[in-house]
């Protein structure tokens, strides 16, 4: 069984991003980039399925600029067998990425697509669901446990207020949540091996996918700054303010 793991190169989660002074976006020039943490969990899960003998091959795929190769190498160092870069220079919206991944999936015919539930840059939380829709495959989002046997995946998923177990007939799409696993550290020997593993480059046109954007970003702004020092007179005022002003209580 083959597993396809789409991964995204994002601004490292330790980097505190800054909004550009002209409000056109956040400043991502020369900041440290890393694999989206949820995707790292996806790679780990796929590699574990391979180590358990469930999967036979793990293929990592990333859509974006040439530098995504570094991120793919990271996936190869964790244990993916080979990698595909769908090279595109402009910004790719989730729908475009989903179409590219679906096109790669049609080509590769995996039994499972495992990917992060959301990317920590745009926080969209869309691609996995969209891939499933485009392929007409069943989906299990926000997975916290995955078992695969007898042509089926049994997935525990995080839902509001608890867990839900679903069964999926393969092929299927699974998106990962935080508790699914703890990704390993790539070992030095595996980092060295990763550069010898195959990495293929495709392009959107070759896959027949139109990636033109549907959204335009008009402005990006900082969140309102903290103004400490506010006081309330009593509990009633506190609760009212938390509800109506801060909106942190229902």
């Amino acid at each position: 069984m083959k597993i396809l793991v789409p991964i995204k190169r994002v601004v490292d989660f330790n980097v505190k991003v800054r909004v550009k002074p002209d409000g056109s976006g956040v400043d991502t020039a020369n900041v440290k980039m890393s694999m989206n943490p949820f995707d790292e969990i996806a790679v780990e899960e796929a590699v574990r399925l391979k180590e358990r003998g469930v999967a036979t091959e793990v293929v990592a795929v990333s859509c974006g600029v040439a530098a995504c190769q570094e991120t793919l190498r990271t996936a190869l160092a964790i244990g993916a067998d080979r990698a595909i870069l769908v090279q595109a220079d402009g910004e790719l919206e989730p729908l475009a990425v989903a179409k590219l991944v679906a096109a790669v999936a049609k080509k590769e015919a995996p039994q499972l697509v495992i990917l992060g539930k959301q990317a920590i840059d745009d926080d969209a939380n869309q691609v996995g669901q969209m891939v499933a829709a485009l392929l007409d495959w069943p989906q299990a989002t926000f997975a916290s446990k995955v078992e695969v046997a007898g042509g089926k995946a049994t997935v525990k998923r995080e839902v509001d207020g608890g867990l839900e177990t679903v069964e999926l007939e393969l092929p299927a799409v699974i998106t990962t949540d935080l508790r699914l696993n703890e990704p390993r550290y790539a070992t030095l020997p595996n980092i060295m091996k990763a550069k010898k593993k195959p990495l293929e480059t495709l392009d959107p046109a070759g896959l027949g996918v139109d990636v033109s954007p549907r959204l335009s970003t008009l402005k990006v702004a900082e969140p309102p700054a903290r103004k400490g020092g506010g006081k309330v007179a009593d509990v009633a005022e506190l609760v009212a303010k938390l509800r109506n002003e801060a909106k942190v209580l229902p």
Binding site: R73, T74, A77, Y185, I191
Partner: peptide
């Protein structure tokens, strides 16, 4: 090569910070 060394440093940095 520079790319491999960059990958090594990156992972070592993660190990140093996290572990």
């Amino acid at each position: 090569d520079p790319a491999t060394v960059a990958a090594i440093l990156e992972e070592a940095g993660k190990f140093a910070t996290d572990v």
